[in-house]
Amino acid sequence: MAKPKVATTSLCGCFGCHMSLLDIDERILELVQLIDFDRSPINDIKSIEGPVDIGLIEGGCCNEENVKVLQDFRKHCKILISVGDCAINGGIPAMRNMVPLEECYEEAFLNGPTVVNPSGKVPDDEEIPLLLDQVYPCHEVVKVDYHLPGCPPSADTLWEALTALLTDRPVELSYELVKYD
């Protein structure tokens, strides 16, 4: 029987949650026995190939590309998990939600102290994804089955949730495993 497939990605995040996944230390050997990776920075596959059992999303949605990737994950993943505070509440990037979008663009492309932009215009390059009006938590964009909060969630939290799902146990996180920092 084929092993369950797991895909992971980071949207508007810092990859810290992925680092936390690596923090499961030697248990990663056990994990590799249990699963195969589809798209993930761990194997550098860039797009989802196909039906996936568990998708892990780090980061919230700050731009159109994030939405595209997230919708793609949702479409292909049986179970989708928001991993970390950014995915769950926007996290640090969501601090821009209290600033008008115009000011964000101006700071990034026109007025910021490190900006060199002779054109004096906000670039209209298609390679730069359009920003959303605000940073959205993942579950406000697509349905999300589980949330693992934390900045990042601890390796134990990730391990517990993953192994529970892979062994058909209910995901029941103990008090120590649900933390927001």
Binding site: M95, H139, V178, D181
Partner: peptide, 30 residues
Amino acid sequence: HFCMFCEKSGECELQALAYRFGITAPKYPF
């Protein structure tokens, strides 16, 4: 509520209540 950098994190009663209730994400839009 950006718990990840808040000085009160770990000692905050709002956060602690959410922990006690096992809240992993609020059900309402931010």
